Computed example of a mutant assay.
Amino acid sequence: MAERPAPARPAPPRHAADGDGDRGSGAVHALTLTLVLGVLLLTVLLLGQAGIATHRAGKAADLAALAAADTARGLVAGDPCGTAERVARDNGARLERCELVEPERVVVDVRTTVALGGPLSRLGPARGVARAGPPEATGGP
């Protein structure tokens, strides 16, 4: 009679000590790294959006204050704060405050806001503040 082959023994279980415990961890690390880089990119983009809105609010405040100061000095006809509001609106901002500074009433303080969109809207609007008026006399000879 022919001998029967011995039944195959099952392979012994592999343990972490065998060096194969890290098998497949590269995919997990790649996914984790991709997620972290995505979150960082999103954070940088949101900070950039906030910075642009702040710059826009500051620019609108500067231009609105200059236009209002020219109107207050009589260089341009009209209401100084009405002019400031129009200039702020034309530059994508909303005029929050316009005040003629006493006693001469030719210096104008202006505050503007630009709304932040998306997830940044919870932080409130970006603000810009400016003051403009005629150059001061130096008192020189």
Rank of each mutant, 00 (worst) to 15 (best):
L33V: 14
A60M: 09
G48A: 03
L37D: 09
T83Y: 14
V114M: 06
L47W: 02
T71Y: 06
R73I: 13
R14Y: 01
L45P: 07
L35A: 15
D20Q: 13
G21E: 06
A88L: 12
V106C: 01
L100R: 07
C98G: 01
T71R: 01
V87E: 02
S121Q: 12
G118M: 12
L37Y: 07
R73K: 07
L42A: 15
L33M: 15
V39S: 12
L120A: 15
P7W: 00
L116I: 11
L37W: 07
R89E: 10
A53M: 04
T43I: 12
G26D: 13
A84Y: 04
A50N: 03
V108C: 04
C81I: 04
R23S: 14
E136P: 12
G74K: 05
R127C: 01
P5S: 02
A72P: 07
G82H: 07
R14K: 02
C81H: 11
P119G: 10
V114T: 09
A53L: 05
T43C: 13
G124Q: 12
S121R: 03
M1R: 08
G117H: 06
G133V: 06
V39T: 11
A67Y: 03
K59Q: 11
A115E: 15
R23N: 04
G118R: 03
P7E: 05
V110R: 02
G24L: 07
V87N: 04
K59N: 12
V107P: 01
E99M: 08
R89K: 12
A132S: 14
G51E: 14
E136C: 11
A126W: 05
P141E: 14
Q49H: 10
V44Y: 05
L120C: 09
R111S: 08
G117R: 07
G48E: 00
R97F: 04
R97Q: 14
D70C: 06
G139C: 09
A16D: 13
G124S: 05
R97S: 15
L66V: 15
A88S: 10
V110I: 08
T113P: 02
L40Y: 05
A50P: 01
